[in-house]
């Protein structure tokens, strides 16, 4: 695949050769918008319906997305935070990316632990890194960050990366810096 092809947005109706048709069938009644990805098809589902959609994708006999590869977030700044689910089917061997967008002022989404238990720690990580609240999560503690650091969300674009400290100790630094 050349870079030109990758950048060309695939027309919304051209998903032949992908599993979108199947996904569309499985998600009937749920608002879903497909988007072509580089490797996998991406499906956008609104927040309120995403868990129902995921459950259906898992239960559907033809799709059978029983394996949650990855759950993460993307900070789109003004456009809110996207929660991304990478799904895989261990027997049908196909992939799907499901996305849901949360507005910045209301970062709540239902937990996916009811669908896959493996979502537990991944959601905890996403929650502490982006400030997303997964309602109904069985264990809403922090995962990687200190237990009392619940107000800092490092992976938000608004969170500054600390300057590389020039001083590594008291009175230390590059000798004659800027001399």
């Amino acid at each position: 695949m050349t870079s030109e092809e990758a950048t060309q947005p695939v027309p919304a109706n051209d998903f032949s050769g992908t599993i979108w048709a199947e996904v569309d069938r499985a998600l009937s009644g749920i608002t879903a918008r497909p988007e072509a990805g580089v490797k996998d098809v991406i499906v956008h589902i609104p927040r309120d319906e995403v868990i129902a959609g995921l459950r259906r994708l898992k239960a559907d006999a033809a799709l059978h997305f029983d394996y949650l590869r990855c759950l993460s977030g993307i900070d789109r700044e003004a456009d809110g935070i996207e929660v991304v689910y990478h799904l895989y089917s261990t027997d049908k061997k196909h992939n799907l990316t499901v996305k849901t967008t949360l507005p910045m002022d209301d970062l709540n989404v239902a937990t996916a632990t009811t669908v896959w238990r493996g979502a537990n720690w991944l959601e905890r990580e996403t929650a502490e890194m982006f400030g997303v609240r997964f309602t109904g999560h069985p264990d809403p503690r922090t995962l990687l960050m200190p237990e009392d650091m619940t107000d800092v969300h490092p992976l938000l674009k608004s969170h500054p990366l600390a300057e590389i400290e020039v001083l590594q100790g008291e009175g230390m630094g590059y000798p004659e810096e800027g001399a």
Binding site: S3, A6, T7, V38, D40, I42, H86, T97
Partner: peptide, 10 residues
């Protein structure tokens, strides 16, 4: 430089 897009490489 990469064009805008996303990929999950495993």
């Amino acid at each position: 430089r990469t064009p805008p897009g996303e990929v999950y490489m495993r």
